[in-house]
Amino acid sequence: MNSFSLDRRDAAGVPTPRTVSRRAPVADDRAMLRAASELTRDLTAPRPAIYWSDLIASSVIGYAAFAAAVTLGASGWGIAAWVVSVLALYRAASFIHEVSHIKHAALPGFRLGWNVLIGIPLLAPSFTYEGVHNLHHAKTRYGTIDDPEYLPLANMKPWSLPLFLAVAALAPIGFLVRYAVLTPLSLIVPSLRPVVEARYSALCINPDFRRRPAEGAARRLWWQLEIATSIWSIALLGAVATGVVPLWAFGVYLATISAIMIVNQVRTLVAHLWENEGEEMSLTAQYLDSVNVPPPALLPFLWAPVGLRYHALHHLLPGLPYHALGEAHRRISAAIEPHSVYHKASYKGLPGLVARLARGTMTAR
């Protein structure tokens, strides 16, 4: 799951092309790839009971804590309840990543359930990620200008990192404008619709990415979810304007979405090393440019939930359900040689990864 980022364009508004780096290419480690595949063949089936119980529990805890935060106000207990709400709803929201990967026949109704519980209420319906995230996993797109979820952040200027986070903080305002204003306006002004679809309908970090129109069943689902989110947004703003929803509750709502997006943006900062500058990469190179933060680290359970702490492994085996990634990592780590490149994608925690990224920006040309 990603959000917004920096617009890398020149003064004339033309996208700035990425320069191709001169780093030596990394060949695929076929022994590692084969071992990873063979050791995890029995882990590919999603378990509905785990998916549903996790999503429902996270949602119930998140909304109950949100209600407590609104009721208790700016007290110590109110702030504590708000933090619990942010973390629980962030976990529930992170299932958008699973929705973009799972075979829906294996989890009937889960996409609809997620959108009703989380996607529509938090203004991030699944169509903004489905059909986008899969491009990030395309071998010939990863790390290139055509990857919607990649920027060479390690080679950008130091000010790019705080700006990267600041833009995420404004996400709820952007979401409300997108659905309460642009959706109905694009129906009235048909010439606006292609712009809305191409530029404002994807959760991505590459500002040069332009989304292609969906077709068939995907387009019907897009319209259903977009209209539902638009109705929710307009109704919410109307309720605030008429005093049905108090300004305090609305402020907590906006702050909650903003905090979720900031936490996710911090996670995004350390999901990859962000050192590629446009060239195509082997699968092994993509794996090494990605990050695992496995146990014994405990905090990643909060800031990289729903399997996101195994992000490098996910790039290696994108078909594995989130609940299988821990077992897959244990099997591969135990079976593969100590000198294998598999172990080189594992890191201790968030501080060291952020420091590495910051050092990269300090030496960027």
Rank of each mutant, 00 (worst) to 15 (best):
N134I: 15
G174Q: 09
V116E: 04
P207R: 12
S53F: 11
R34L: 12
Y347P: 02
H97R: 12
I257P: 03
P172G: 10
R47H: 14
A65P: 03
G174V: 11
L123Y: 02
P48S: 14
R111H: 10
T19N: 07
S75E: 04
A88Y: 05
S201C: 06
V70T: 08
I188P: 01
L165K: 08
R356G: 12
P121D: 04
G216N: 10
L357A: 05
L107C: 11
W77Y: 14
A304P: 03
V252E: 00
V252W: 00
N264G: 15
P172V: 12
R22W: 00
S282A: 13
A27P: 04
R9D: 00
A358F: 13
V293R: 07
V86G: 04
L117Q: 04
G143H: 02
V177I: 15
T71M: 06
I50W: 07
V177R: 04
L308G: 00
V245Y: 07
A214I: 00
P213D: 06
Y347R: 15
Y90K: 14
L221V: 10
S282W: 08
N276E: 07
V240S: 08
E277I: 03
L298D: 06
R193N: 01
A217G: 06
V244D: 04
T284F: 11
A198W: 02
L33A: 06
L225H: 01
G109A: 11
G349M: 05
P172N: 14
A355H: 08
K344A: 15
G73A: 01
H315E: 02
R331D: 03
S85M: 10
V70C: 14
K139M: 12
V240T: 08
I56V: 14
V291M: 07
P25L: 05
P15M: 05
L6H: 01
S346W: 10
N115F: 03
V70L: 02
F4L: 12
A228N: 03
F164R: 08
A11Q: 02
H323I: 10
L203N: 08
R141M: 10
R30F: 00
S333D: 10
V26L: 11
D208K: 05
S258Y: 06
Y310R: 05
Y253W: 12
A364E: 05
T256A: 13
D7K: 09
R193C: 01
L122M: 13
A67G: 14
